[in-house]
Amino acid sequence: MMFEKILAVDDDSDILDVIRIILEQEGYEVLTLANGNDVLEMVRQNSPDLILLDVMLGGMDGREICKTLKEHELFKKIPVVMISASHNLHNLLLKPGAPNDFLAKPFDISNLIKIVRAQLAA
């Protein structure tokens, strides 16, 4: 059985722990990263099936990282779900290099699972 691999990127280790526990219980393999600097390298090395990416990453902007991923030939097909405490991200989804979906913080566990399943099934 092949586990789908999810990369979660957030500078809040408590949030990463929660995401990892929830998604591992759902049968996913979860990799976590606490900063935005190593995202491209982590994606290159691990080829995740989905990326959960926080918007505010301690001095880095997750939206820029998302755009870089979406413009990269090798990574552009990987779904990216942005996570943010800001709720006005709907307009983000319309821009070039946009994420595939977004999840507002604090997030509902069932909503997280629903979005992950939907993106992996797409």
Score class of each variant (00 low, 15 high):
residue 97 G to Y: 04
residue 3 F to N: 10
residue 4 E to M: 05
residue 4 E to N: 03
residue 55 V to H: 00
residue 88 N to K: 12
residue 109 I to C: 08
residue 94 L to S: 15
residue 23 L to E: 00
residue 48 P to W: 00
residue 14 D to T: 07
residue 63 R to V: 02
residue 108 D to R: 12
residue 61 D to P: 02
residue 47 S to M: 13
residue 121 A to F: 14
residue 4 E to D: 06
residue 10 D to L: 08
residue 46 N to H: 11
residue 122 A to S: 10
residue 79 P to E: 04
residue 33 L to E: 06
residue 115 I to T: 02
residue 117 R to Y: 13
residue 116 V to G: 00
residue 91 N to R: 14
residue 87 H to E: 15
residue 65 I to L: 11
residue 73 E to F: 14
residue 75 F to Q: 09
residue 109 I to D: 13
residue 50 L to H: 02
residue 78 I to H: 08
residue 44 R to I: 11
residue 111 N to H: 10
residue 71 E to Q: 13
residue 53 L to N: 03
residue 87 H to F: 13
residue 67 K to N: 09
residue 78 I to Y: 05
residue 101 D to F: 04
residue 98 A to K: 11
residue 21 I to Q: 10
residue 64 E to R: 01
residue 95 K to V: 07
residue 114 K to E: 14
residue 15 I to C: 03
residue 83 I to T: 07
residue 7 L to S: 01
residue 103 L to H: 01
residue 97 G to I: 05
residue 85 A to P: 11
residue 18 V to F: 12
residue 107 F to G: 11
residue 95 K to N: 15
residue 109 I to H: 07
residue 35 N to S: 09
residue 77 K to Y: 10
residue 118 A to S: 13
residue 22 I to L: 05
residue 65 I to P: 01
residue 80 V to M: 05
residue 14 D to K: 06
residue 81 V to I: 12
residue 112 L to Q: 02
residue 11 D to K: 05
residue 64 E to S: 07
residue 120 L to I: 09
residue 63 R to S: 03
residue 43 V to I: 09
residue 71 E to D: 15
residue 48 P to G: 03
residue 27 G to E: 07
residue 20 R to M: 07
residue 22 I to C: 07
residue 64 E to V: 01
residue 67 K to A: 08
residue 2 M to P: 08
residue 35 N to M: 08
residue 19 I to C: 04
residue 57 L to G: 00
residue 32 T to E: 08
residue 114 K to Y: 10
residue 16 L to F: 05
residue 93 L to V: 13
residue 93 L to P: 06
residue 3 F to T: 13
residue 95 K to T: 12
residue 103 L to M: 04
residue 74 L to Q: 13
residue 80 V to A: 02
residue 43 V to W: 00
residue 47 S to I: 15
residue 48 P to H: 02
residue 15 I to K: 00
